[in-house]
Amino acid sequence: MKFRSLTRSHTGRVVLAAVPVAVVSSLLMAGVANGAVPVSFAVSGSQFQISASQLDGTGFSQYAGVAPDTAGKDHQVAIANIKSATLADLCQSVVTDTPMGKVGLLITAGGGGSPASASDLQIGMTDLKGDSTFGNIRIGVDASTVNTAAKGGVGDFAQDADTVKIANLQQTAWSTQASVFTLTGMHVQLTDGSKGCF
């Protein structure tokens, strides 16, 4: 069964170099990357924040794409793939407007020297900040030839690397999926929407 990504590559789009980050998600589904559980879904109407004091990953690629929502609108994203990652002091936050006002959800994990871990990630992101180091990076490769299982469209701009390290990471994203996500010391809390990861 063929792996289906939550975002689509977008022919002709060129994205500036960026790096991936694993994010906390309710889609903690084993077998996605092996095709056992095909994934295709519409994103919500809210982007979310992710931060980590340190990300260490292997098997990285990135290319342009879109994340569709339930209204049929495509959101332009940088599709980032990472084979395996550990994340120290991981945080995810999202704010939603409700009839009772703004409601926030704040999730933390991977603190106290026991980082969270994830494998076979794909993220549809719009912004990223941090201090990054790449091992054996290739910039400007054809997106259909990147060194990860998930690939982009023929002729599209892409980059890949054997390893990636990001310190003081801050990211905004529309979507993510992972085959396995281990959240050590997870804490989920509702907020009034005034508190985020950054």
Results as ranks from 00 to 15, higher is better:
residue 63 Y to Q: 01
residue 66 V to L: 05
residue 169 L to V: 10
residue 90 L to G: 11
residue 19 V to F: 12
residue 15 V to R: 10
residue 10 H to K: 11
residue 181 F to K: 02
residue 72 G to Y: 06
residue 63 Y to V: 00
residue 17 A to I: 09
residue 111 G to Q: 10
residue 39 V to A: 12
residue 174 W to D: 08
residue 157 F to G: 00
residue 154 V to I: 11
residue 134 F to A: 09
residue 109 A to H: 05
residue 10 H to F: 04
residue 149 A to H: 06
residue 105 L to A: 09
residue 110 G to T: 10
residue 169 L to I: 02
residue 136 N to A: 15
residue 115 P to D: 04
residue 81 N to I: 07
residue 22 A to R: 01
residue 70 T to I: 12
residue 186 M to W: 04
residue 58 T to E: 15
residue 58 T to L: 06
residue 177 Q to C: 04
residue 14 V to F: 09
residue 32 V to P: 03
residue 80 A to S: 15
residue 29 M to W: 10
residue 166 I to H: 01
residue 91 C to E: 13
residue 183 L to I: 04
residue 115 P to M: 01
residue 38 P to G: 12
residue 153 G to H: 05
residue 51 S to R: 14
residue 161 A to F: 08
residue 197 C to S: 13
residue 197 C to K: 10
residue 190 L to A: 14
residue 165 K to L: 11
residue 30 A to M: 05
residue 197 C to T: 12
residue 41 F to C: 06
residue 163 T to G: 03
residue 112 G to D: 15
residue 134 F to C: 02
residue 152 G to P: 10
residue 56 D to P: 01
residue 24 V to C: 04
residue 119 S to H: 07
residue 20 P to E: 06
residue 175 S to P: 00
residue 7 T to W: 02
residue 77 V to K: 11
residue 59 G to K: 11
residue 79 I to P: 01
residue 89 D to C: 07
residue 185 G to P: 13
residue 124 G to Y: 04
residue 100 M to R: 12
residue 131 D to M: 00
residue 120 D to L: 06
residue 57 G to E: 09
residue 80 A to L: 07
residue 181 F to R: 07
residue 110 G to R: 11
residue 96 T to R: 13
residue 154 V to P: 08
residue 87 L to R: 06
residue 129 K to C: 00
residue 189 Q to K: 15
residue 19 V to P: 00
residue 73 K to N: 15
residue 146 V to L: 08
residue 170 Q to G: 08
residue 160 D to P: 06
residue 143 A to Q: 07
residue 66 V to R: 01
residue 163 T to Q: 11
residue 104 G to W: 01
residue 1 M to S: 14
residue 20 P to Y: 02
residue 164 V to H: 03
residue 47 Q to V: 08
residue 95 V to R: 10
residue 3 F to N: 02
residue 118 A to F: 10
residue 35 G to W: 06
residue 41 F to A: 13
residue 36 A to T: 08
residue 60 F to P: 00
residue 178 A to Y: 02
residue 118 A to S: 15
residue 103 V to K: 15
residue 32 V to C: 05
residue 116 A to V: 05
residue 113 G to H: 03
residue 189 Q to T: 14
residue 168 N to A: 13
residue 171 Q to T: 11
residue 65 G to L: 09
residue 189 Q to E: 14
residue 71 A to S: 15
residue 24 V to K: 00
residue 119 S to F: 01
residue 47 Q to F: 00
residue 28 L to H: 07
residue 127 D to T: 02
residue 23 V to T: 15
residue 20 P to D: 06
residue 19 V to T: 10
